[in-house]
């Protein structure tokens, strides 16, 4: 599904600031991978570089989605080919109804893939069902995108977008940040409902607790722009128990 090979990236404005330093990872269809690491290890940058945000220069290595060079594409082309990023800080768009935004996005992707656009009726039916599962009410669908949403509402809204867009490769960037226990459960249930053999996940998180709800197949520890250790779910528990210090020391040794 996703193949990242020896990826190096730095800030476009300041080539002295090198953030990714040889990051490699292969994710197969249906797998859930978690990336953990201390602040500043480059986790969010990884998600931005993969999704095509301005401001980063890739200096070495590459990334492909189903064999197609991801880094050559515009952000919207990456989205249409199945890459989805659930933002750590979902963006507010005043005056644009949540529903309008969703449908514009869904139809833009369908159009890009040469599929027929959904009619208002069809769209509404699907949205209603999925919104219900995430306990998103009619009012939240009508309100402007993320404006005045609580932290939990914003994250549930990200998952609703994901459910509607049906991506193949989902990157969740610290989706657990700012969530209380109940909200975390709702969001995790939403993610778990989307797990299937054809869809892969890359879950970026600082804490182990999210991984109690979204059970990963693999856990990777990231530090200083690359993976320093990989393992199964037990690796996350180890971090929870001992923190990152030992792992970092081990890697440095």
């Amino acid at each position: 599904m996703l193949n990242i090979n020896n990826l190096h990236a730095e800030l476009e404005e300041d080539s002295e600031v090198k953030i990714l330093k040889g990051f490699s990872l292969t994710i197969n269809p249906g797998e859930v991978h978690a990336i953990m690491g201390p602040n500043g290890s480059g986790k969010s940058t990884l998600s931005y570089v993969l999704s095509g945000r301005d401001g980063y220069a890739v200096t070495e290595g590459g990334a492909t989605l189903e064999g197609v060079d991801l880094l050559e594409m515009e952000p919207e082309e990456r989205a249409a080919s199945g890459l989805f990023l659930a933002f750590q800080y979902p963006v507010e768009i005043p005056g644009v109804g949540n529903m309008t935004f969703l449908r514009t996005a869904v139809n833009a992707q369908r159009k890009a893939r040469g599929e027929a656009e959904l009619s208002a009726g069809e769209f509404l039916k699907v949205v209603r069902a999925k919104a219900n599962e995430l306990q998103i009410d009619a009012d939240m669908l009508k309100r402007p995108v993320n404006v005045g949403f609580s932290g939990g509402e914003k994250k549930r809204n990200e998952i609703l977008q994901m459910a509607m867009l049906e991506p193949k490769m989902c990157i969740l960037d610290e989706t657990d940040s700012g969530l209380d226990v109940d909200a975390m459960k709702l969001v995790s249930d939403g993610v778990n409902a989307l797990r299937d053999a054809g869809r892969s996940f890359l879950v970026i998180t600082h804490y182990q607790r999210l991984l109690n709800h979204i059970k990963p197949d693999f856990v990777h520890i990231m530090s200083d722009g690359r993976i320093i250790k990989s393992g199964g779910p037990e690796l996350a528990l180890e971090v929870e128990e001992n923190g990152y210090t030992d792992l970092l020391a081990e890697a440095a040794a």
């Binding site: 919207e76 989205a79 989805f84 963006v91 768009i93 514009t104 869904v106 833009a108 992707q109």
Partner: peptide, 9 residues
Amino acid sequence: FYCRQRGMD
């Protein structure tokens, strides 16, 4: 960027 990540040009 948010809009484009969701597929809009």
